[in-house]
């Protein structure tokens, strides 16, 4: 059984002029799969993640996580979320920010403290546990935010353009690290991005959305071998996938 099943999901933002954000979204994500969602700005990528995590109520269709509705999965803390901005508490140190979910779950014993520290080491911030967010760089803050999402070991990790605000060099580094973490933690990731290269480098499959209202145009397999070396981005196979994805996106813009 797939870990995440999305069936015929539609969403319309209510209001005086309702905006149709998503139409008939259906796809599945297998356990331990890394899947990306790409599409032009305003195509409902973020809306989709909010629906998957029960931050928005579903109008039509259903979202099942391990066979249960998203509401239940959220209450069981089966969903981790990384936002585009780090969304850290400025008054807390890195370590305490990472420990926040455990505190909320009332699991803040000694072993959990050690978990938080090892997670900070995993994201390369072992020497920065006592620093506050204002004492860290943008990339470092986003690492803290990723470590925080991993503390309670959610089976499903949703990432909403987590590296969108970073410069290209930092972004490439973060991609490499994210793959390392994903391989070590054996988690399932749904990763929203508007960067085609990032999507190909990270993912097993890529869901391509059309402009508003977002519909699934195509679901593309990325048959590149793992573990992936960054040099793979200059390979023939990578280039072919990129070209075909660009074609898909452009085709939608002309006909859609």
């Amino acid at each position: 059984m797939a870990l995440l099943e999305v069936r015929d999901v539609c969403y319309i933002y209510p209001g005086a002029q309702p905006v149709e954000a998503l139409r008939d979204i259906t796809f599945e994500v297998e356990r331990n799969e890394f899947i990306s969602v790409i599409g032009p700005s305003g195509c409902g990528k973020s809306t989709l993640l909010r629906l998957l995590s029960d931050l928005l109520p579903i109008d039509k269709g259903e979202v099942l996580i391990a066979g249960e509705p998203a509401v239940v999965a959220r209450r069981k803390r089966e969903i981790g979320f990384v936002f585009q901005d780090p969304a850290l508490m400025p008054w807390r140190s890195s370590l305490k920010n990472v420990r926040l979910p455990l505190e909320v779950l009332r699991r803040d014993g000694a072993s959990e403290k050690a978990t938080s520290e090892s997670l900070l080491r995993l994201v390369g911030l072992g020497d920065f546990t006592a620093k506050r967010p204002d004492q860290l760089s943008g990339g470092m803050r986003q690492r803290v935010s990723i470590a925080r999402a991993l503390t309670y070991d959610p089976p499903l990790l949703l990432m909403d353009e987590p590296f969108g605000a970073l410069d290209q060099i930092t972004r490439d580094e973060m991609n490499i690290e994210l793959l390392n973490i994903w391989e070590q933690k054996q988690s399932t990731v749904v990763f929203v991005t508007h960067s085609i290269g990032e999507a190909i480098y990270l993912s097993d499959r890529i869901v391509v959305l059309s402009p508003r209202p977002g519909r699934i145009v195509d679901i593309v397999d990325v048959p590149l071998p793992r573990p992936r070396d960054p040099a793979i981005k200059r390979s023939r196979e990578f280039f072919d996938i990129e070209t075909s994805l660009l074609g898909t996106l452009e085709g939608r813009r002309i006909h859609g």
């Binding site: 029960d54 931050l55 959220r74 209450r75 803390r77 969903i79 936002f83 969304a87």
Partner: peptide
């Protein structure tokens, strides 16, 4: 911070 609030909601 609305994001942190969403995080708290996510954690129930």
């Amino acid at each position: 911070d609305p994001r942190v609030y969403e995080l708290m909601r996510l954690l129930n």
